[in-house]
Design a protein around this nucleic acid. Sequence first.
DNA 1: ACACAATGGAACCGATCGGTAGCAATGGCG
DNA 2: CGCCATTGCTACCGATCGGTTCCATTGTGT
Lengths: 92, 92
Amino acid sequence: MLVRSIGEAAAQVRGRRLKLRLSQDQLAQRAGVSRKWVYEFEAGKQHAELGHLLRVLDALDLQLDVSPRSASSESTQGTVNLDAVLERHRDG
Amino acid sequence: MLVRSIGEAAAQVRGRRLKLRLSQDQLAQRAGVSRKWVYEFEAGKQHAELGHLLRVLDALDLQLDVSPRSASSESTQGTVNLDAVLERHRDG
DNA sequence: ACACAATGGAACCGATCGGTAGCAATGGCG
DNA sequence: CGCCATTGCTACCGATCGGTTCCATTGTGT
């Protein structure tokens, strides 16, 4: 699932946690963070620490991926493929 | 690309930035963060703010994805498919 | 040699994160 | 009904983040 904002990440975390039938407390302990962090993050706090998120995702058996946005063509009509443009523009 | 740690995310950011021929300063301005943040993040600082990373990735035309780790079968021999286990264990 | 861009790094400092502890409300369940 | 787990939320507070401003060094091009 694509994650554009912290809110979306929060939704993913909460959804997954519920799916796994974990309480905020259990998740917090598994991930080594405080329940407050879990609660606040799920509530949409706008300034969360990346390291904590990684640990929580790990505890939820979720993984994080980074990929070029315009790479997955399709549905890119009307948008610019920055990758391609830059590729062409390069020294070559 | 899979991202397991902050260091890996940092590598992605730096690699992409260089690929796009952007200076730390340019990236910072595009993303609306300070050059210090870019520099420290690329250097592997262990406590970075998630919101900043999202903005930087956006400025680099990179996207972030969350997915169940054990979903992508294959190469999962010797490991447990938590998803499947929990799915089976559920109320059904 | 000179000028300039880019980077690594330090100092300073206000803003805020995150942990601990606590409380009220809610919802099962015996 | 009591008992317990879970959750939302708060105050407190030390630790630290991140922006700004500096400087030294290393290219790169003229």
